[in-house]
Design a protein around this nucleic acid. Structure first.
Lengths: 251, 251
DNA sequence: GGCAGATTAAATGTCAGACATTAAAATGTA
DNA sequence: TACATTTTAATGTCTGACATTTAATCTGCC
């Protein structure tokens, strides 16, 4: 394993980077045990706390896992899709919230990606996926549903559609796009009428996917995107008007 | 900030999770300074090294940055798209290499996503994007190019196409899909003839994008995907035959 | 008064050594 | 052999100290 010269960066960052490179580069393979913290400290000529900070950095990225006890230590972790989902969702959410990404841009990206999955989903969907979609549509019709719950159900519906493509890599990529939109979607107030319209479109999508009709699935997704953006715009407009009237009353 | 009971997990992991929740939840906003390590240690009733391990975990995810000196400390970091690209590429690469994702599955996902960008790119591409694509095509024609360099140029070409869509969220999502494929692509030996075929398809794509012809762009991407998979299959077949003949000679 | 340089203060970065805890392996015993 | 005990090697945590960096403050000189 490589050493590190006297650079400007933290020692723990350098050590983490060195080990990370070994993992990404394939020198350290899955489930292989790293040297103990004491041995690493010895090798890199730093103290054990410094090594530990480096290992925690790697653990935060799910690159390693640690185990206590006699045969314990740090092991190269098999990065599973489920672990990656979470990171993906967190990262995507923060990107949207911290970079002032507009609703339109996020929405466009999301539906572009979703439409990429749709033809495959129409082809390969299983009864399981269809059942999930139908169940969520049913849930969305419940009258007492809060806006948050409606959005959550919306996410589940769309994830079922995406998973229907039967491609784990696609599902992983889409997890971020779909779930990261949720906070933005939560800003929308869903009236009874708009819910009705969305449910109708969802039903059309489920029907089209069940009929393995890729073209109709695509067309309906385009409609849904247009309607979603229309809803968001009306919210923005309503807020602007409210702000204006408030200014007038206070003036 | 919340405290943590005596759980089975590491204290540093719990503290990191608590702070992470505050950042994701918006209680801690961008560029806000966290309490000093000593104060955090006091608050969570742990020692400073434990707090530091927690902070390093967050730093590894680019959620915070640290600064030394009198007015230093840990600050909530604005997660930029560029930082997220790197994480995305690393994660996607590891997912593919550690989970035995087949070339077909990865390739299908990549081209499905890329085709999602194509219509937007055809509509919005700037002269800059076109110039990059043409330059990379030119590079790909150089006779002395190694397979690695050819693949790298291929990635640059496709990223220019994706960036042409003018949607940062899409570019971010695609970065992982396109770049993570590179190690898999590097397994392919590109003969002079196959390079010629790929360059021809790339030229067709650039022409179609320049002409803002979404349909033709899509059709050519489909051809390129088919050709890429064909190439990969021939490599696999050739290897299988080689292995078989080796068995025979050794037997 | 204003500015350059020295000092101070507050924070992170690093170290050393110790003890606590865990879990497997080795050992002893019925 | 089967079971209980001890040993051991590793991570998890704590204490206290020192090093380093950086900005703010103070000081002295013009």
């Amino acid at each position: 394993m490589k050493i590190d010269p006297d650079s400007t960066k933290d020692l723990s960052a350098q050590i983490a980077e060195a080990i990370r490179a070994e993992i990404v580069g394939g020198q350290l393979i899955v489930d292989q045990r790293l040297p103990s913290e004491a041995e690493l400290a010895d090798h890199f000529e730093v103290s054990r706390p410094t090594v530990r900070e480096a290992l925690k950095r790697l653990a935060a990225q799910s690159l390693i896992r640690t185990q206590r006890g006699a045969t314990g230590g740090a092991f190269v972790n098999r990065l599973r899709f489920e672990d990656a989902y979470d990171q993906q969702v967190t990262t995507a959410s923060l990107l949207l919230s911290m970079n002032a990404v507009s609703f339109d841009v996020a929405c466009e990206a999301r539906y572009a990606l979703e439409r990429a999955c749709a033809p495959l989903a129409a082809q390969r969907r299983t009864p399981d996926h269809l059942a999930t979609m139908r169940a969520e549509i049913h849930r969305q019709c419940q009258p007492g549903l809060t806006d948050e719950a409606f959005c959550a159900s919306d996410v589940t519906f769309h994830r079922a559609l995406v998973d229907g493509a039967g491609n784990k890599v696609l599902s992983y990529q889409l997890a971020g796009a779909v779930e990261a939109m949720q906070p933005l979607m939560n800003m929308i107030t869903f009236t009874a009428r708009s819910r009705e319209a969305i449910v109708a479109l969802h039903t059309d999508i489920a029907d089209a996917v069940e009929a393995q009709d890729a073209a109709k699935t695509d067309a309906t997704l385009i409609k849904l995107e247009a309607y979603t953006r229309e809803l968001a715009h009306s919210v923005v407009t309503a807020r602007a008007q409210k702000a204006t009237s408030k200014e007038q009353t206070s003036a």
